[in-house]
Design a protein around this nucleic acid. Structure first.
Length: 637
RNA sequence: GCCGACGUAGCUCAAUUGGCAGAGCAACGGAUUUGUAAUCCGUAGGUUAGGGGUUCGAUUCCCCUCGUCGGCUCCA
């Protein structure tokens, strides 16, 4: 008599073994209707799985993250079936659920077109309407390979051949369509109601550019129409916030062919924001005990040979240039220079830790196809720093870095963080002991801050463990900017050392870290986070004084001059235009405050402010408004 | 780099099956002196990304180059 324990701790008993579906039905008719799969003792299974012994059972519905993933995975099968019906020669390859939808890769003799997409979607709806049962079956390895080969599905046969021996081969059948899949899946195609094919793309078989290019069709699916619409709205919102578009509208920056792809030109308004960011950064670093360095943009190729970049970073570097018969390399990183500064004299343990920061511009070769606005460029400025310290100082230093990181990110308006600790990969330099110690120190620093984190086992770089911090923006997207990375390699390669208390020479620990990562990318993220509506302290123009007519130019200029003298970024618009026209123009430029001046304002030494939401504050004496603006301009975070 | 889509005035977009390349905004000139998201009139603005081909004729069809956009690990 199996006993089924449910998530709430209660349990169901049954005289005979029940299927997951039957258990759901026993709990409630509503749950049975919503159920698409189950979790039995922690493993996801199909609804018709018979549970013949005691087990913990959870019923999966499309509203849970796992349920949604199953729904999307099943929708990708539905799409594959539609494609096979419409394009019989197409071979199916893989079709997983991904972050916000699913895809399926096909090999077909000709490219699919947007019209094909519409036809596929229509056929999917038809198949869904037929409500075909989706049935799992096991098959012998060779039998499965033979079957797929008989269908001329060579990719599937290849996949099966690589499945570990101890794993069962399962197939899912819906109508005439049968696909290799681990499952689980929804019980029938009728459960797939809300889906949409979104785009076409090329994708290499197994993501390897040496392999054949397949055709990927992306789609998404949701539990209900409302969720799909919410998703589409989010996409629209993201498009509205696109930093490339806002960057152009607000004249912040450009990237032009005449200079080259991935090379950013910061226009005056963008440069203002950058300068504010840099000033803030410098203040915070001074307070945190950093010194600043300036180092060259290129160096003798030998430096990069010594650092090892020439070996392990070559694909990301521009080709060297020849100067006086010597090879020079434009820098992809700043670290070797900081090492040279360290090595320029004998260092004592009393000097450590040394914290050296640099807004260092680096150049990296990115394939033309991956360049993307400010997010993926070929030249960018890192808010880089290197800390040289003793082993015993690691935890304290990392802790201080985390402080500075979170403080900085909060200053720019980010509140939600996700922390990742990456540990020793298989191929690594440095002794197990040092890895062990360092990783423990990183962990300790994270815990010291009471932060939650995920551990990415084996995800570290070969030269040391690292901590990455992801931020969440205003519309819920995640971005990784900050990274703190221990390095056991470079100190070794450059043979740097310090004299310890014992009079012997010791190897310092080197920590690389960047808070914003790339100023260009961070600026792009800020633009999208705020949708161009920068808070006062970051806004390139904080206020514009608008005149009703030319008669008030004198007062407008006086207002501008006074606010400027107080340190505010203010402009005047004296143009002979209607006030509505001027308001519209500066509102579209997302200026936080518009100060309107006319007869009444001049007489009373006042302004009539209008905020960025269109709210009019009425007549306010200039002095009072100036104080308000100064207070707002001082607020960060 | 590879696959696909795209490339028309500074910007946003038109131009029937191949038949004189257009509009709005912006710019410039003039008028208007205006009270909270577009005042009116006028002027100028183009090697239709670049190159080649087919054609009596190409923005339109074909080829090449350049660029932009969406993708190219997310485990059957």
């Amino acid at each position: 008599m199996p006993r089924y324990t449910l998530p709430d701790g209660s349990f169901q008993e049954s005289a005979a073994p029940l299927s997951v579906f039957a258990i759901a039905a026993a709990i409630g008719a509503g749950l049975a209707r919503a159920a698409i799969a189950g979790r039995v003792n922690g493993s996801l299974v199909d609804l018709d799985t018979l549970v013949d012994q005691d087990a913990t059972i959870e019923i999966i519905t499309p509203t849970s993250p796992e349920g949604l993933e199953i729904l999307r995975h099943s929708t990708s099968h539905l799409m594959a079936q539609a494609v096979k019906e419409l394009f019989p020669g197409a071979q199916v390859t893989i079709g997983p659920a991904v972050a916000d939808g699913f895809y399926y890769d096909f090999d077909y003799q000709r490219p699919f077109t947007p019209e094909d997409l519409a036809a596929i979607e229509k056929r999917m709806e038809e198949i869904a309407r037929h409500d075909l049962p989706v049935k799992r079956q096991l098959m012998g390895r060779q039998e499965a390979i033979d079957w797929f080969l008989s269908q001329d599905e060579r990719y599937k046969a290849e996949i099966i051949a690589e499945i570990p021996e101890d794993q069962a081969i399962s197939l899912y059948r819906q109508g005439e369509f049968m696909d290799l899949c681990r499952g689980p899946h929804v019980p029938s195609t009728g459960r797939l109601k809300v889906f949409k094919l979104t785009r076409l793309a090329g994708a290499y078989w197994r993501g390897d550019s040496k392999n054949k290019m397949l055709q990927r069709i992306y789609g998404t699916a949701f539990a209900d129409k409302k969720a799909l619409e919410a998703h589409l709205t989010l996409l629209e919102e993201a498009a509205k916030r696109d930093h490339r578009r806002i960057g152009k509208e607000m004249d912040l920056f450009s990237i032009q062919d005449d200079a080259g792809g991935g090379l950013v030109l910061w226009h005056p308004m963008g440069a203002r924001v950058r300068q504010i960011i840099e000033d803030q950064w410098k203040r915070a670093h001074r307070a945190a005990g950093y010194e600043f360095l300036f180092t060259p943009h290129m160096a003798n190729l030998d430096l990069w040979r010594t650092s090892g970049h020439l070996d392990f970073y070559r694909e990301s570097m521009f080709n060297p240039m020849t100067v006086d018969e010597q090879s020079y390399q434009i820098r992809p990183m700043n670290c070797p220079f900081h090492i040279l500064v360290f090595r320029s004299q004998i260092r004592s343990h009393r000097d450590l830790p040394m914290r050296w920061a640099e807004l260092g511009t680096v150049y990296r070769y990115e394939m033309s196809g991956v360049l993307h606005g400010l997010f993926r460029v070929r030249g960018f400025t890192q808010d880089d720093a290197h800390i040289f310290c003793r082993e015993s100082q690691i935890e304290e230093e990392i802790s201080a870095i985390l402080d500075l990181t979170l403080q900085t990110l909060r200053t720019f308006g980010f509140e939600k963080f996700e922390i990742n600790l990456s540990t020793r990969p298989e191929k690594a330099v440095g002794s197990d002991a040092i890895w062990e110690k360092a990783t423990a120190a990183l962990r300790g620093a994270i815990l010291h801050h009471g932060l939650e984190y995920c551990e990415d086992v084996g995800g570290g770089a070969f030269y040391g463990p690292k901590i990455d911090v992801k931020i969440t923006d205003a519309i819920g997207r995640k971005w990784q900017c900050s990274t703190v990375q221990l390095d056991f390699n470079l100190p070794e390669r450059f043979d740097i050392g310090y004299i310890g208390e014992d009079g012997a020479r010791h190897r310092p620990i080197m920590i690389h870290r960047a808070l914003m990562g790339s100023l260009e990318r961070f600026f792009g993220i800020l633009i999208e986070h705020y949708a161009g509506h920068f808070p006062m302290w970051l806004a390139p123009v904080q206020a514009v004084v608008l005149t009703i007519t030319e008669a008030y130019n004198d007062w407008a200029l006086e207002v501008e001059q006074k606010l400027r003298a107080a340190g505010l970024r203010v402009e005047t618009d004296l143009r002979n235009q209607k006030i509505g026209y001027k308001i519209r123009e500066h509102a579209m430029q997302k200026v936080p405050w518009l100060l309107i001046v006319g007869e009444r304002e001049r007489t009373e030494g006042a302004v009539s402010p209008r905020d960025r939401h269109g709210k009019e504050l009425g007549l306010i004496p200039l002095e009072e408004m100036m104080q308000r603006l100064l207070v707002e301009a001082g607020q960060q975070g």
